[in-house]
């Protein structure tokens, strides 16, 4: 059954350790069902604290080329919503603590049926949802029903979300808030840390929720810099690129988990390291 406190417990534990969470993004079914399962199951051991699992969509209009291609690979491999939920179910048989957040677009959920999707997601052990094309203006579609199933609805705040709009974006948001570091698509250029730190500080004035930062974070160094002032660092396109550039499934698993380990090491050290340039 669903434990709606998994995200809360995770952030509480990390606060004790005085370090940010490492959040990884991979697309379910990329590059194929079996490799995707291996990738998913190895993430906690490689150092991921929170897992974002993408539900592939044919028209991912908020994603850059890396995640677009990942979605295509997954769909060509026959990935479906049923299979994605099943991946979570099988993962939960072995891991009852690492939070899983499903990320994607509304249409596959809408076509699956919102009630059916939420019921199955809750029983599979999904902790949260990030649905890019559902702004607060459409909260009655999925956000409010999700809360009734004990699933957090995690909203994106962006550089264009001004102070006037922020309260609306934060209302009904739970789990954490995802700050999109640049106006743009996933995998875009990295933001300057100074501007980012100011934005995160501004966001903190409006919310007690943990703040994750993502979009454009590719290296251990960037993760460390951003992890100093945020509660979680999200890395997606860089991991997905590892899959694209691997010539065999084994190599994909090795590369992804390898990069995760590097990132995990740097977020663990970033608030305690003595050498400022390392962070």
């Amino acid at each position: 059954m669903n434990t709606p406190t998994r995200l809360k417990d995770c952030f509480a534990a990390l606060k004790q350790q005085n370090r940010p969470a490492l959040v990884s993004y991979l697309t379910a079914g990329d590059p194929d069902a079996e490799t995707s399962r291996r990738l998913l199951h190895g993430l906690p051991e490689a150092g991921v604290d929170i897992i974002e699992l993408g539900m592939p969509f044919s028209d991912p209009m908020a994603d850059g080329p890396a995640i677009q291609k990942a979605a295509l690979r997954a769909l060509e491999g026959g990935q479906t919503q049923v299979k994605t939920l099943d991946m979570v179910r099988r993962f939960r048989e072995q891991n009852s603590t690492t939070p899983i957040v499903l990320m994607g677009y509304y249409n596959p959920i809408y076509c699956y049926g919102v009630e059916r999707f939420l019921t199955e997601a809750a029983s599979a052990g999904v902790d949260g949802l990030i649905v890019v094309d559902l702004p607060p203006e459409h909260d009655e579609e999925l956000c409010q029903p999700a809360a009734q199933h004990g699933i957090d609805f995690i909203r994106l705040a962006t550089p264009t979300t001004d102070a006037k709009r922020l309260p609306k974006v934060l209302s009904n948001t739970s789990g954490f808030i995802y700050y999109v570091s640049v106006a743009g698509v996933t995998g875009g250029s990295a933001p300057t840390p100074e501007r980012l730190e100011a934005s995160v500080a501004q966001l903190r004035e409006y919310t007690e929720l943990p703040i994750a930062v993502g979009f454009g974070i590719r290296t251990a160094e960037q993760a460390a810099t951003i992890g100093r002032f945020s509660d979680a660092v999200v890395v997606g396109s860089a991991l997905v690129d590892c899959i694209e550039h691997a010539s065999t499934p084994d190599e994909a698993v090795e590369r992804v988990h390898g990069l995760v380990s590097e990132l995990a090491e740097s977020v663990r050290a970033c608030r305690t390291a003595s050498e400022p340039q390392v962070c």
Binding site: M61, A62, Y106, V132, D133, L134, P135, E137, H138, R155, L156, A157, T158, P159, T160, T161, D162, R165, V169, V180, A183, G184
Partner: peptide, 12 residues
Amino acid sequence: GGRFVAETLMPL
């Protein structure tokens, strides 16, 4: 109808 877009576009 509606406004099913990413948050970045909503203010605009």
